[in-house]
Design a protein around this nucleic acid. Structure first.
Lengths: 195, 195
DNA sequence: GTCTATATTAGGATAGAC
DNA sequence: GTCTATCCTAATATAGAC
């Protein structure tokens, strides 16, 4: 990792974020030192502070960017039937979660290590995403294609179920992504009484 | 918290475990210092080492005890119909998770901070519990009362969904436990095609 | 923009008195 | 069994040279 002195501003910033995300997710925010991040990037610890004010701001920035990416990536079409939109959500959420499993795990786990201000801002973004699913479920109930008792609780239950795929999925494992999406969609369809 | 010198062996040991569990769950293993735990218990940091060899052993002990408690508490009756046993599992898992939410969260999150030996032992216990559900699902499929594509994936999906209740449940909130159990059981029954 | 060096604080763990 | 005191290590963050 040792590297001769030199300037590489164009890539160091993103590298810090990439490596910090991976290290935080795998060891936990508090367990990772700035020296570790610097070593992964290939700079000395002091150099990090040209890019970030402190460790807390780095964490908050990673989590907020992730939630923003998630919201930006999700595309809904309210003109479609609710059941079709629900299927879209299921497949999107699984794919996005697997593509960003480090950030997903970090978001779940390190919210408590944020200052109250940062915490509030990021939880608000998460709630916008949850509400997107809740709206679909309510539409499904209203239009009679779904049958369920409590849209809000069902929202939380479904998101937990889908996100859980990151706990056991391994690239090249027994099931490929398409198949996983199919199976989860079958579970969800049944859960919302749409069979 | 400051306390006069004295001997209270009969309670200090359990107190260390209780407070460590709570602190680890709320701040993360790495973020909690031995001094913090000692302060919560009401002793000096050095006194902890009369009860535990080191911080790592304390974590491993908390996680292993939790998994053992879970396995001990779960009672299945293979003579009952699979659907009835599944309902029992759903209600048991929700109740147990809410009664031990700190330990549940810790188990999910801090496995990676265990040494390989400790990690292996505790994951093996967790797998025994997961298999208990998987067996019920397989029986349900065999007997024709359930319809699902992949018992192993469905096991992981259902456990993630049920455990997720710890993320949002608050004592005295909109829904009481009985009602939550009813709603989740409705979701699960639909997911396994038992309507 | 990155380096080396360091100020400052705090961590886990141990020794020996009471 | 617990206390006080301390060893040793490592942490975040900053200062100033290159």
């Amino acid at each position: 990792m040792a590297r001769t002195q030199g300037s590489r501003a164009e890539i160091t910033g993103p590298l810090i974020r990439t490596h910090a995300l991976q290290l935080f997710a795998r060891q936990g925010y508090a367990a990772v030192s700035m020296r570790q991040i610097a070593a992964a990037v290939g700079v000395q610890a002091g150099a990090l502070y040209s890019y970030i004010p402190d460790k807390q701001a780095l964490l908050a920035d990673l989590l907020e960017s992730h939630m923003q990416d998630l919201l930006d990536a999700w595309r809904d079409d309210p003109a479609l039937p609710a059941l079709r939109r629900l299927e879209g959500f299921v497949r999107f959420h699984i794919d996005f979660s697997l593509d960003h499993s480090d950030a997903v795990f970090l978001s779940y786990m390190e919210l408590r290590n944020l200052t109250p201000d940062n915490h509030h801002r990021i939880v608000a973004l998460r709630e916008r995403y949850e509400t997107a699913l809740e709206v679909i479920l309510r539409d499904g109930v209203t239009s009679g294609t779904m049958r369920l008792d409590d849209p809000r609780l069902t929202t939380m239950a479904l998101i937990a179920m889908l996100t859980g795929v990151t706990n056991w999925y391994r690239e090249g494992g027994r099931l490929d992504r398409q198949r996983i999406g199919d199976i989860y969609w079958g579970l969800v369809r049944g859960a919302v009484g749409a069979d």
